[in-house]
Design a protein around this nucleic acid. Sequence first.
DNA 1: GCCGTTTTCGGCCCGACTGTTTTCAGTCG
Length: 591
Amino acid sequence: MSLNAELSELFRILAALMDIKGENVFKAMAFSKVSRILKDATIDVKKAVEEGTLEEIEGIGASSRRVIEQYVRTGKSEDFDAVAATVPAGLIPMLEIPNLGPKTIALLWKQRGITSIDELAKAIDAGKLAELPGMGEKKIQLIKQGLALRTAAGKRIGIVTALPLGEMLAEQLRHLSGVAAAEVAGSLRRRSETVGDLDLVCAVKKGAGGEAVAEAFVEFPQVHRVQAKGAAKVSIATADDLQVDLRIVPEEHFGATLMYLTGSKAHNVHLRGLAQAKKMTLNEWGLYELDQYEKAKKSPGAAPAAKPVAAKTEREIYNALGLKWIEPELREDRGEIEAAAADALPKLIELKDIRGDLHCHTNASDGRSSIEQMAQAALDRGYEYLAITDHSKTQVIANGLTAQRLAKHAAEIRRISSSLKGITLLAGCEVDILADGRLDFEDAVLAELDFVVASPHVALKQPPAKATDRLLRAVENRYVNVIGHPTGRLIFEREGLTFDFEKVFKAAAATGTALEINGAYPRLDLNDVQARAALAAGVKLSVDTDAHSTEGLDDMRIGVFVARRAWASSRDVINGMTLGQLRQFIAHKRK
DNA sequence: GCCGTTTTCGGCCCGACTGTTTTCAGTCG
């Protein structure tokens, strides 16, 4: 775990301890914020401490700074240890149990001496929870249910699984009578690489009731269990124990609810702060003048009886707050609100800006489709070019090409390319970056190719210093145009390489080497935060699919989501270039 | 704990739903 990650975890636990201790909730929120800041940070915390730049970071105050500084120097924090000594460590994981929160955990601890999940389970079975204040039979059953669910609840699913499900549910909602609009919201709308649950927003037309939609929704075939059902909100679980939350609102409030449910939480909190500064209040019903809102009559599930400043569309609400509309992918409170206020948001890349795919395989190595089939599929997707980049010889398991086979393959690619209209094939290779940074082919072999992707496939657990040298060596090779899936991580499966990002980004920018956003799930490598830091260092990105079949080319959509979350414009991405520009990019490095 | 053209003290985002409650606390997002 990196130092940033360790500290982020430390503050996450510190916030949890505050919650359980029943400290001021804002204290816990403050620590949570520090945890999030450290998780998102692409800065090197150690360096920030050494250079004294920690205090420039908003949200990190004197107390947190003291903890960070001591931890960086000594690997521990006395402040943290002092708090941790007062609360049993076993209580922290209990916070992950659905339906069980900090107040109840503290109650169980103080009144029944329960200090771990195991003890909780035993206490329930022994009937020891009865007669606690506020603890009825239903509540005990809820906690029991939560215990049974906890493994599933902590499980996140990938965007490639969640997106089709979410889009299908939204489409089913749109077909219900009285429904004006339905959209996916939540982290899925922000295109996070994984999601913990699904959020949907449904707008009903005037005169139509939310009850009917709620009733119809719980009858959808995907619904396995209903957890809560009101006229404004329904929570269900699918057969796979994925939670789906639906909000139902009158259409004139659709934008406010969509915005609220899209989040992120940090983004929303920041916006509500802005609203307050303007003597307004922002909630899922809309943006209201504070004095009018306070006077207005309110009842659960119904819009407050006040005229909102804005509510119908997201754009109106952002504008009323003095902001440009913010793309959902940016809503992480990573500077997008400040940028929106300054009209300095990037024009995010879109799928239609992509002119070609620069990393794919054919049946010459481990792909399933032929050169012709891949070329036709690329043409069908409107591409101007396609680089065919089969594996190099070390990838025996992937039927990697020897230099001899590669030369023949390249000739074949060029022959087919010259017979095609509307698309150019680039004869390339995905050459292995060996553990020591040597490439799997000599320069003389690479020099014969039009395009080279160099990727690490093995030795993905080597120490950071070695990994840094390894990648730098590949970056500095004049024939290497893209570093493919630079870390080699696989979501949920392996962490991949850690290396000195700053150093590698700097070298990539200086040499004219692009870094890949590999759109093949579960790679998504670089990830959003890394890719954004690369862009900030002046690096170009290459958004590719690593397709092993014609259908694999469709993963470009996912790759573009990651690029958008990295704040990338089309000009930041080499396969947003025309073929002529791309050839210049390649030639420039070879000079 | 953090922050400041509204504040160095006193605020800090806000509502829906459930359960145990006779008016609210806890959890969730």
